[in-house]
């Protein structure tokens, strides 16, 4: 743990420590953030496992009886995602709706890790498992958010080319927004179009990843700042008037921010899902 010479943590040291990943590798590209990937895969297993169990349950119960509560919940989520997809995307696709469901649930679970008390899992990691650092919210790791947005980006390119053909895809990037009936003028406009369109196109995965990352990173940061309120206060300090005041202030601030954050984590998951649906339906559209 980052401590000053007197054995006390500085606020900066505390925060920087919390923003460090448990990594494996040389620090360059060939580094893996073990904590982000661990929680990412754990939550993938939680989502996949529970939804698969509910789905199996639903399939087995086709003839008989009422769905269980969890199954009803799963169906509620599935129906919600399905209606969102149907409102936005009018084509035929076996991929978009499951993709949207995966994103919504997975990102929601990532973000939900943010309302776990900031020091709980790192403390367990340090004291029980001897881990020098632990970051529990995967969506505060740029690698994770970019990993998702780039996958969506690649899917968009793949479906654009598959649906419109390579020519159609290139035409989409070069023949708009400026177009002219005369061929020479059009040829002149093509580089400009390409520049504009490719920026728009490339901005999608970047904004998708950075929006999620930024929101969750900021949320995490606020939790850390709230936690700093009682940093280095021992039990004796907490018994003093100032200590009690600081404790109460920290509790209220933490509660208020956590409640507000519930909105943020749901909204960010929803936004990631909706934008993915929009981008995917744009990839399927003909011009």
């Amino acid at each position: 743990m980052a401590t000053s010479e007197h054995g006390e943590q500085t606020a900066t040291g505390y925060i920087v420590h919390h923003l460090q990943n448990l990594s494996f590798g040389d620090g360059g590209f060939w580094t893996v953030h073990l904590d982000s990937l661990f929680f990412s895969i754990l939550l993938a297993g939680l989502f996949g496992g529970s939804f698969y169990a509910a789905a199996r349950n639903a399939a087995r119960q086709r003839e008989a009886g009422l769905p269980s509560r969890f199954q009803s919940f799963v169906e509620l989520v599935v129906e919600f995602v399905d209606s969102q997809v149907k409102e936005t995307f009018r084509g035929e696709s076996r991929l978009i709706a499951p993709l949207a469901l995966t994103i919504f649930c997975w990102v929601f679970l990532f973000n939900a890790m943010d309302v776990v008390p900031v020091d709980l899992l790192p403390a367990i990691g340090e004291n029980v498992l001897g881990l020098h650092a632990l970051k529990v919210v995967p969506s505060t790791d740029l690698n994770i958010t970019f990993g998702m947005s780039l996958t969506v980006f690649l899917l968009c390119i793949y479906f654009s080319i598959k649906i419109k053909g390579l020519g159609g895809f290139v035409a989409e990037l070069t023949l708009q927004p400026f177009s002219s009936p005369s061929k020479p003028v059009q040829a002149l406009l093509m580089p400009i179009n390409f520049l504009l369109e490719s920026i728009t196109f490339l901005a999608r995965p970047v904004s998708l990843a950075l929006r999620l990352y930024g929101n969750l990173y900021a949320g995490e940061m606020i939790f850390l700042l709230i936690a700093v309120m009682t940093l280095n206060l021992g039990l004796a300090d907490l018994a003093s008037f100032g200590g009690i005041l600081a404790g109460i202030a920290q509790f209220i601030a933490g509660l208020v921010w956590a409640l507000f954050h519930l909105l943020v984590i749901t909204l960010q998951a929803f936004i990631f899902m909706m934008l993915t649906i929009v981008y995917m339906s744009m990839a399927h559209e003909h011009h």
Partner: peptide, 15 residues
């Protein structure tokens, strides 16, 4: 870093 690539693979598998 490499985390990104692994996350993409995990994501693809989950999809």
């Amino acid at each position: 870093n490499l985390t990104l690539v692994i996350q993409m693979v995990v994501f693809a598998l989950l999809i």
